[in-house]
Design a protein around this nucleic acid. Structure first.
Lengths: 241, 241
DNA sequence: CCTATTAAACGTACCTTTTACGTTATAAAA
DNA sequence: TTTTATAACGTAAAAGGTACGTTTAATAGG
């Protein structure tokens, strides 16, 4: 294993988590002191990333970063874009930061996103925190653009593939599923029609349990069966324009 | 402008063309002679690609390659994946080839595809040729995997976005549109239902012209109006699972 | 000139899904 | 026991998809 890093190839991870308040992103605090300990020259937030080892795959680099950040080995993930414009790293803070790391100022970053329920992350890495996607802090590099691109990509995936379940625990209520769609797609859905549509799917399996601990009528729990989904998806009706 | 190239960052272009026989790919012949002029040590086909200039954007590199290949300045294109496994370049032919170019054996390749009608390419670059996607020649590197990945991505795009029209001339018949869908998605479509569905779209505009020079009844020509599409697409019906 | 041929174009009945709502059930809290 | 809010069920109309049969119009060949 060659642990030297490429100075010009990095991986950035957009870790997307869902909880009852909506879609959250897991960000890392970036702080750099030069002159004194009180006023850092760099003090903002970034997507968690790292340069790629000489002997690891891109996917492996992404999962290594994800594990350092969340302590988790597995989650749904997808490489969605590479960012490599020459002026990606141009403002003073970013240049100072890059020089302090000893890597190149022209770096190609391969971007991944990860999708999971926020509650699944038990041990957060130091200097990292969840932020609601509608209320992000000051971000370094072109990371706001990368986040926007990740959001568009996962929205498209959520609309056409059974990816929404990656954001939910194994057992979920119909309303939790609806709120997941509403948070991620940014739409409102009629609850009665939504239930009807979802219950009709063979791969949404009702289990004999209720969501307890709520103030009102307990809701039935359901599970998503990937096996049944694969076996029953004809994917007719393929032209949706 | 800095014309030095990154030795470890390249761009590969999957140029997809459609004609009446189906989907075609534009490939480049790769030949390397070492010992004599008769038996080349490398003699196969590859996707057209190049290493990225130090001062150009990834998109610019892709379009530079596309222009060299086809003579065209514009076409629909999309960056769909980066390929960067350490063992991407491992067999003897690929290693010989890479060494002859003086670039690194571990290279991250950012892959783009382009979509256009075959007829639009008037001047083909030397040592390049169209190949039907079902009948590709021997390919170098991991280019068969890149092509497969490009095909899956564009199929998904064709199903959910008005991308099919990129493969057709401005004016097309309904049957040409149907055959485009059938070639790219690999499905059979009922002609009568297809016509009904397409004609009902406000952005498919009937023009008062016929496709002439055919042996049978001349077909009416239609155009796709991007303006009308954008203005009329509610994109309701967003959950397609 | 007439007929055969075939792509192009039109039509219809039926089924499924979506949409826009109104209504009922149930558990906990007041 | 009543109130309250979520959960769950229901219905009619509209829209869209499916599976076919039929008609039209141009050329080619006798």
């Amino acid at each position: 294993m060659d642990f030297r890093k490429f100075p010009n190839i990095s991986v950035d991870c957009v870790v997307m988590g869902l909880d009852h308040t909506g879609l959250q992103l897991l960000l890392s605090k970036r702080t750099l002191h030069m002159y004194d300990d009180q006023y850092p020259v760099v003090d903002d937030w970034v997507l968690t990333g790292d340069h790629v080892f000489k002997s690891e795959k891109l996917d492996e680099a992404a999962n290594r970063i994800f594990k350092l950040l969340t302590g988790l080995n597995t989650s749904y993930y997808r490489q969605f874009r590479a960012f490599g414009n020459p002026e990606r790293i141009k403002n003073d803070r970013d240049l100072l930061w890059v020089k302090s790391l000893g890597v190149d100022t022209r770096t190609i970053s391969v971007a991944y996103y990860f999708a999971l329920p926020v509650e699944q992350v038990k041990t957060l890495a130091p200097h990292s925190a969840w932020y609601p996607i509608q209320d992000l802090p000051e971000l370094g590099f072109d990371h706001r653009e990368i986040i926007q691109s990740a959001l568009l990509d996962i929205q498209e995936k959520v609309m056409n593939d059974p990816i929404i379940f990656e954001f939910l625990p194994d057992k979920f209520t119909l309303n939790e599923l609806q709120h997941a769609y509403e948070s991620i797609l940014g739409v409102e859905i009629d609850n009665r029609n939504f239930r009807k549509k979802i219950i009709a799917k063979p791969y949404i399996v009702s289990i004999n349990e209720k969501r307890i601990g709520t103030a009102k009528k307990p809701a039935n729990l359901y599970m998503f069966s990937k096996d049944i989904f694969i076996k029953t998806s004809d994917k007719h009706q393929i032209i949706n324009i």
